[in-house]
Amino acid sequence: MKVHNDTPDHVTESSYRMFLVDTPLVSVPPSGDGRVPPCGFGSFHQQYVVDGKLIAVGVIDILPKCLSSKYLFWDPDFAFLSLGKYSALQEVGWVKENQVHCPSLQYYYLGYYIHSCSKMRYKAAYRPSELLCPLRYQWVPFNIARPLLDRKPYVVLSDHALLQDGESLPPQTAENAIEVQQNDNGDEDTNDVLIDDSEEMIEPESESSDDESGPETSGQTLENCDVGDILIGLKDPV
């Protein structure tokens, strides 16, 4: 309600659960053999507490190769602490610390990036970083991608990387031009959602849905299998 000007009747437990609790990830318990970190793989809430008071919650996915930062909501009374930046640094530190237990953990993932959206520019502040070209699924260093994105709203990020490798580029067509959305006044970014004194959580309008049922969180665990090949578990359609 503080950030998105939602009315009280829009804030419901079911929408919170669908948005920030339910997950398609299959829980994988710690294995003790260096393949899984001590907390296991899956979806988690990281709680930030000061003097017994909950001031922020980070919603994260822990996968075999990365920690994916999905969302952060925080108490507006503690905005002066820049909790979005603090939580990002804590999450980066977590990846470094847990490489000892799980060497496959190498990356910190901040999700989608829109170059023209001021609310997402903070993601480019963490370096070194890369953007994924959605056409060829190649990772491109941000320092290479940035001047391309500065010049025009439609760009194939991996073109520059291919030229550097001496490869010829495919013909430019409407099908292989990737649109960079012009959304400077768009939805709030993930680190802009707050939690008030009563610890009531808010679902952004951009994430709202008429279907309040949502997928249920899977409590299934998998053993004696290659966790590197396990990313998500899909429920059978109802």
Rank of each mutant, 00 (worst) to 15 (best):
residue 151 R to M: 09
residue 44 F to D: 09
residue 11 V to C: 14
residue 215 P to H: 12
residue 3 V to A: 12
residue 176 N to L: 01
residue 4 H to Y: 14
residue 77 D to N: 02
residue 196 D to L: 03
residue 110 L to N: 04
residue 157 L to Q: 02
residue 52 G to Q: 04
residue 105 L to M: 04
residue 48 Y to N: 03
residue 148 L to K: 14
residue 75 D to A: 00
residue 108 Y to Q: 04
residue 106 Q to A: 00
residue 19 F to K: 14
residue 54 L to E: 00
residue 67 L to D: 06
residue 157 L to E: 05
residue 210 D to T: 10
residue 1 M to S: 11
residue 115 H to V: 03
residue 190 T to C: 13
residue 107 Y to R: 14
residue 188 E to A: 15
residue 136 R to C: 11
residue 74 W to E: 05
residue 143 N to H: 10
residue 86 Y to T: 06
residue 14 S to K: 15
residue 165 D to P: 05
residue 229 D to V: 03
residue 151 R to N: 06
residue 198 S to P: 06
residue 9 D to I: 10
residue 35 R to Q: 07
residue 232 I to D: 01
residue 213 S to D: 13
residue 140 V to A: 04
residue 224 N to S: 07
residue 77 D to V: 01
residue 112 Y to G: 02
residue 135 L to N: 15
residue 99 Q to C: 00
residue 3 V to S: 13
residue 96 K to V: 03
residue 80 F to A: 05
residue 213 S to E: 10
residue 143 N to C: 08
residue 117 C to P: 08
residue 2 K to Q: 11
residue 57 V to K: 08
residue 192 D to W: 10
residue 76 P to A: 01
residue 67 L to K: 07
residue 122 Y to T: 08
residue 162 L to S: 10
residue 137 Y to S: 07
residue 160 H to F: 15
residue 232 I to Y: 08
residue 3 V to D: 13
residue 61 D to G: 03
residue 73 F to I: 00
residue 211 D to W: 11
residue 130 E to G: 00
residue 110 L to C: 02
residue 70 K to H: 13
residue 64 P to N: 03
residue 124 A to M: 05
residue 149 L to S: 09
residue 175 E to P: 03
residue 203 E to M: 13
residue 117 C to Q: 12
residue 48 Y to F: 14
residue 173 T to D: 11
residue 85 K to T: 10
residue 80 F to N: 10
residue 89 L to K: 11
residue 107 Y to N: 13
residue 38 P to K: 06
residue 112 Y to C: 00
residue 44 F to W: 15
residue 41 F to E: 01
residue 169 L to H: 12
residue 130 E to F: 09
residue 128 P to Y: 13
residue 78 F to E: 02
residue 59 V to G: 04
residue 192 D to C: 14
residue 97 E to M: 01
residue 17 R to V: 13
residue 159 D to G: 08
residue 109 Y to V: 07
residue 64 P to M: 04
residue 119 K to R: 11
residue 159 D to Y: 14
residue 39 C to N: 12
residue 72 L to C: 06
residue 132 L to Q: 14
residue 4 H to F: 11
residue 86 Y to M: 06
residue 127 R to M: 13
residue 119 K to I: 01
residue 198 S to M: 12
residue 144 I to D: 12
residue 92 V to Y: 04
residue 213 S to G: 08
residue 147 P to R: 05
residue 112 Y to R: 13
residue 177 A to Y: 08
residue 50 V to D: 15
residue 166 G to Q: 03
residue 153 P to T: 08
residue 214 G to H: 06
residue 130 E to W: 14
residue 81 L to V: 00
residue 93 G to V: 01
residue 34 G to F: 12
residue 130 E to K: 10
residue 203 E to C: 12
